[in-house]
Design a protein around this nucleic acid. Structure first.
Lengths: 338, 338
DNA sequence: TCCTGGCACTCCACTCGTGCGAGTGCCAGA
DNA sequence: TCTGGCACTCGCACGAGTGGAGTGCCAGGA
């Protein structure tokens, strides 16, 4: 077990390294933090911390830098979440309140997160799976062609063309629209399949094929759109990454373009609070030198999607976690209001 | 006026520099291209080309590299557009045909362009301004709350909440919906304002306020969404940019995040064919060392939006122009089919 | 037992100097 | 108008030398 002082030394190393981006030595440590002991003692502690794998030296005669394991300990035990200041909170709220629709909310959230954390921001669109149907609309575009529009409680709209197997008159369209809405409006997406399966039986035999087609299109939409969309911003912040630039940034940009990867990454974070995945804890290789700070957000108590930031493992964890948490909270409020 | 041979020398310099990314000297030129003259002659030609501002030397005793003006001449006079090969065409078509909706078409187009050109791809969503209304839907969510949904012929859907000044019954909703559609369905967005201005008069006095609110929301949507959206991809290709990396890539990433800048950039290209803006021809400072190759695309004969790529001025212009043109053509086809 | 000051050692980062080579400009001759 | 030759320039790679920050270890003291 590590003594209290050694933990303090680790904390100091992380803080200094995050600030200066340079390996930190024993002398500098004792000067900047009043640990009450001499550099020699700190050196001994450092040797112990290195032995345990919390810190490492890039070169034999250089200072120490934290390892992924060191950051992990720092995040778990040594650092709190730094709350936003009241002016910051107000700024967040003001900025988000100007949004006109869901796209705009997401876009603003991305910008905001990127600016606050000075890192790459990732915001997932509110998930369909956990949200409810507000309205289903059915439009007749041509005798055998319908358009299905699905509106969710988060304000999201999805539309699909439906080619009918047989012409379908105006009155059955209205009938189907009314029946659909009375059954599924206000219900969760996951419940929809069970609620509509017997609908074709209510129609004339010649219309049943069309009704079935419409229903399967509806169900398809739920499933397909479950492959969530993302919005990303602040990639220019990657240029503050480090010195050995091109090699580091390349795989990160590539990973960011693979939305599947990001979605998986966000999805893996099951924690109800802010989740931090550090360096090699991220399954994707390109993100091995980055940390991902994410959290769920949603209109009610329940999280309907995730948002977060991607940055170098050497990041200001307390500040980033605070910003991510605060933004998630206010986005939730905005969604609940609209 | 430059002699024919000097133009050939310029062409050779551009081609070699694009290939090697290194300043090209007189000796290497005569070896790689059989110009039929000696290095000394080429040197004289180079001096003349430099005098005219088409090429420059980075350092006193280095080879020459083309200037923006040199690239301009190359693009205008010396290079054709390199057509895609039949297999490439087939691949493009196959890839785009798998798209399920408009978002998907745009997303696939971005990926495709980025892969083909190995540069950053930018695709503008089909513009509302030039497209027509397919359908307007009005839904009653609460006694004094409506949802307005607008569907365009390009498959795009926009929705807006409308808070009514007074309760609005089901039958006036249906009435307004029907009247709206009979007037604006199939019409161009730009024509809509004139077509609906007298609509409130057809309603009972107590409903007129609501009708006006709905109409102004509709018109707002047209205007607001005229601020087009973009999709960007292939930013990882920026890492192939050059050696003096961080300084070059930073402003480009920043410019790419400013959608306004990009939209302006695309908007400025009035040419009916492929437009190339080279280096300092781009108004935005961050893009001074990049070239933008863009072209309009659309479902019919008319262009409804633009797409293009952003890359280093040192790019393969014929190939890039060919790819951009081909992709635009096939996207147009896909849009026309759906 | 733990902390401290001192000391020798390591090794990176930087500077300076040098030589090399690619490339140029110019000139005289064909 | 083109060509070959020649002197010149200048960036770049290489190597040696140096300074400094940092370490590990050890003996002495609380």
């Amino acid at each position: 077990m590590l003594s209290e002082r050694r933990l303090q030394v680790l904390r100091a190393i992380v803080q200094d390294y995050v600030g200066t981006e340079e390996p930190v030595g024993s002398k500098a440590l004792t000067e900047r933090h009043n640990l009450g002991v001499s550099p020699a003692t700190v050196r001994n502690d450092m040797a112990a911390l290195e032995e345990e794998g919390f810190i490492a030296q890039p070169h034999t005669s250089a200072g120490r830098i934290p390892t992924d394991k060191g950051y992990r300990l720092f995040v778990d035990k040594l650092a709190g979440v730094k709350p936003m200041t009241p002016p910051e909170r107000r700024a967040i709220q003001n900025f988000l309140e100007g949004a006109v629709d869901l796209d705009d909310v997401v876009a603003r959230t991305v910008r905001l997160l990127a600016q606050l954390t000075r890192q790459v921001a990732v915001v997932q669109y509110p998930s369909l799976t956990r949200s409810t149907v507000r309205h289903v609309e059915l439009l007749s575009l041509a005798p055998a062609r319908l358009m299905l529009v699905l509106i969710t409680d988060t304000g999201r709209v999805e539309q699909r063309m439906v080619d009918c197997p047989a012409p379908f008159g105006e009155s059955p369209v209205a009938d189907l629209r009314a029946r659909l809405n009375s059954r599924v409006a206000g219900r969760r997406f996951t419940d929809v399949p069970g609620l509509v399966e017997d609908l074709p039986e209510a129609f004339e035999p010649e219309d049943r094929g069309t009704v079935s087609t419409v229903l399967s299109t509806l169900l398809e939409t739920l499933v397909e759109e479950n492959e969530e969309r993302l919005m990303i911003g602040g990639t220019a912040n990657l240029t503050r990454f480090g010195h050995d630039f091109p090699l580091t940034i390349r795989p990160v940009l590539e990973a960011l373009e693979e939305q599947v990867v990001l979605l998986k990454l966000l999805g893996e974070a099951k924690d109800p609070g802010v989740t931090v995945r550090i360096g090699h804890e991220n399954a994707h290789e390109g993100l091995n030198s980055t940390s991902v700070v994410s959290v769920g957000y949603g209109s009610g108590g329940e999280a309907v999607a995730k948002l977060g930031v991607v940055g170098p493992t050497r990041m200001d964890y307390p500040g980033t976690m605070g910003a991510v948490r605060a933004v998630a909270r206010y986005v939730g409020q905005i969604l609940a209001e609209s």
